[in-house]
Design a protein around this nucleic acid. Structure first.
Lengths: 209, 209
DNA sequence: AAAATAAACGAACGATCGTGCTATTGTCAA
DNA sequence: TTGACAATAGCACGATCGTTCGTTTATTTT
């Protein structure tokens, strides 16, 4: 591992921390240089432009999410077990990601949703992949007989994303300590609504369209 | 209405538009002065500091939301009718608010959630009031017999906020035209899960904790 | 209409922004 | 160990940031 690669990785790590608290627009080259102990120009040379730096940071954020949340659950059996573990991992990530601030991907998603360009493409791709992961996870649960046949897995992913955002809102912005309870209960409601009728733990029948 | 007040209102209107696309941190005094046709110093004098301008913009955003979404539904009968109308109004607001960009309140919520100070207090208050409004709306539906007794109205509000964020994500960032369908269906699932059993339109029984 | 007050301007400030250069330092292979 | 090259520093640039100040122009009140 050459020097340049190592430095670049260190820069991206620090950039992620900075971005998690101050957002993509708060990620400034001068500040980042100061925190990494590099000169502005020395740091700049690693990326060529501000935008390329931002793209790299967004990619690093995705890689970090994959490492911390996605990868660990791939060892678990497909279907409900994996999905449940992913949910719990995601809630943990949202509440206390490995940065001082909140999830950079969520923040960037709302920051960039009205500004077309490479940055929005990058974060939109990340969100699409995340939803696809959830959708496939739900589909596996259907295939395994955990979830009822005919479940709309795209809607399932949509709802789960909503819970995640509501969590950030509750836990981070409002700072309510019972936020995680609401997350878990909302998630439980959603899972219960997707279960196969034979496994329906709460005795309710589920809506099939 | 004196001149100063009129100008201030015009500034805030333009500021809201600018903020909806570029975020709170993109709301710069120079740019805002240019768009309103004022000089930087002339504009600045209306607020005294950048932070006070930002606070004023956040308050203006709340007022605008109240006018467009909250106020109209207060004429409707309490309970489910009002709640349904509010939902539809909110989805419409999220998809195409009276600004070029997306909902400034949602954007600011994620932008400020890690930066304590007057700005975060302001937006946190807005979110708390919004949730209280939803919670009370659900409580009225319970009182009116539309929703089942024992419904957790706080959880209900939590879930609804989640749907709204997921909508912004889907409709704005990803630009999926069918986004509104998912919003309505997720909302329908939530409402169905809250209905009194006698009115349950989908034939499912509901989970009561 | 004159006096009093409010509103807006123009110019300047120090700071920081992103981005080019050139020079110097460090690293790695021959 | 030297030579090639990658990595970093230093410096400067035009632009823009938020802010202050004194002045000028509008508006409102007397």
């Amino acid at each position: 591992m050459s020097k340049g690669v190592r430095t670049r990785a260190a820069i991206l790590g620090e950039a992620l921390s900075l971005m998690s608290t101050d957002g993509l627009s708060g990620l400034t080259i001068g500040l980042l240089a100061e925190r990494t102990g590099l000169s502005k120009s020395g740091l700049f040379a690693h990326f060529g432009s501000k935008e390329q730096l931002q793209v790299a940071v967004l990619q690093e954020a995705q890689a970090c999410f994959t490492t911390h949340v996605i990868r660990p659950v791939l060892d678990l059996p497909r279907g409900l077990p994996r999905l449940e573990a992913f949910a719990e991992g995601w809630w943990a990530w949202n509440r206390s990601p490995p940065f001082p601030g909140g999830c950079p991907i969520q923040a960037a998603s709302l920051e960039l949703d009205d500004r077309p360009g490479p940055l929005r493409d990058e974060i939109a791709g990340a969100q699409r992949r995340l939803r696809a992961f959830i959708r496939q996870g739900a589909a596996m649960a259907v295939a395994a007989g955990h979830f009822r046949p005919g479940l709309d897995c795209t809607l399932f992913a949509f709802q789960m994303v909503g819970i995640a955002f509501a969590q950030t809102m509750t836990c981070r912005l409002l700072g309510e300590p019972e936020g995680l309870d609401f997350v878990r209960r909302a998630w439980r409601v959603q899972v219960d609504g997707a279960l196969g009728t034979s496994q329906n733990q709460t005795g309710e029948m589920n809506h099939v369209e």
